[in-house]
Design a protein around this nucleic acid. Structure first.
Lengths: 218, 218
DNA sequence: GTCAGAACGTGCAGTGACTGCAAAAATATT
DNA sequence: AATATTTTTGCAGTCACTGCACGTTCTGAC
């Protein structure tokens, strides 16, 4: 029944089954919503497609949407650790740039799942809001990490929160662009371009540098 | 019954009543949620506190949350118009800075409402996510306005979306800081400081300039 | 291998957000 | 005043989501 199961078995059969069930629910949710839309899919159908009872769905995900666009807690912690481990004295904006560039490849790794996610998210805009809405907590945690790095007090000093929210906005913008783009340009390129503009004070660039379109003249 | 009604009566009694009802629902929702929390307050209670039927609540707001943190459509349109009406050739970041400064005083006008909103949003983090999620649409509209101004195509050019999301993030950060601050410093000051840093490429400032704390030494 | 204990899955009943529909009430128009 | 239009309201219904109790499945010790 659990045929194509990975060889890794970290903490017994029980955890492995949970992992499989979680994955089945995610996949079933994405596929069904991709076909029938968000409103046209009930949690009951998702549960049935994944081979579990309706009640069990909510043992794995708090909301229907979280099965579709839920974030990976481990990844978030890894990013925060990366922020803290950057060389002392490095400018905060550079820190964010480098960390996001570093993790861009991780994000691009399982592009299949991401592609399906993006596809579903594009068809159901409320999901995109959901994704970005969750970023408030993220902004805050990043602000704390930056404050810690720079020896500032994020309760009284507006700078860490500003850098965090602006850097995250820049990254979101780049990821969004990359996700809806047809071109095969790597995510890291879009992120680098965004942070370059940020560091320069957002001057108006000559032309769209992130797309495949090249200027005919110059 | 409609005692303290403003003197403006743009389109008859009907519209005025709707305005009052909408405001009553907003206020009732904020107060009740402030007391009992988001989960501890039902739409039925909100409707009752505002003096309308439960069904009517949903004639005014699509969700319970939107009554708490929903954006004012008129204000949004006014801001977008202001963006378009800035002098041609003005750098986009400057445009955003000036428009947000211009509207800072409007925002600060009903500080009571905003303070209550922030308070409620802080106590119920899921609302913050909601706010952030809704700002996706706003980011997009600003991006379109900037693209229009600069003669760029916001479908292929990442620049307008970047400026929009980053500028909006900076404003949100400033408003948030201002809202939770005890000091009487004007909102416009916080916004101006944030945009100054943005235009300079987010260099690390000497010390917290937005707070009342002054350095003892230098 | 067996047995206790914990963790997990499942059914049941319930709350509450939200919707469509049609009748009643309020308001605008002539 | 009579009529047309808009708004409010009640009603019935769907569905996301929750607590609880019970059965099932795994784990660890003997």
């Amino acid at each position: 029944m659990l045929g194509a199961m990975g060889e890794a078995n970290p903490r017994g059969l029980r955890d492995e089954k949970k992992r499989v069930t979680r994955h089945n629910l995610r996949l079933a949710a994405l596929r069904l919503v991709d076909e029938r839309g968000l409103e046209g899919t009930t949690t009951e159908e998702i549960a049935q497609a994944a081979g579990v009872s309706p009640r069990t769905f909510f043992n794995y995900f708090p909301t229907k949407e979280s099965a579709l666009v839920g974030v990976d807690a481990e990844l978030a912690e890894a990013m925060l650790a990366a922020i803290r481990e950057r060389p002392a004295g490095e400018p905060p904006l550079t820190v964010m740039r480098e960390v996001y560039l570093q993790f861009a490849e991780v994000t691009a790794a399982d592009r299949d799942l991401w592609t399906l996610r993006i596809q579903v998210a594009r068809a159901n805009p409320s999901l995109l809001s959901q994704v970005f809405g969750n970023s408030t907590k993220w902004d805050r945690r990043v602000a704390e990490a930056i404050a810690q790095r720079t020896g500032r007090d994020h309760h009284t000093d507006p700078y860490p929160a500003l850098v965090a929210s602006v850097a995250n906005a820049a990254r979101r913008s780049a990821v969004h662009r990359w996700a809806i783009s047809d071109s095969e340009a790597p995510l890291s390129e879009a992120i680098a371009a965004a942070f370059d503009l940020l560091a320069a004070g957002l001057p108006e660039p000559p032309d769209s540098p992130g797309t495949a379109t090249e200027r005919a003249g110059a």
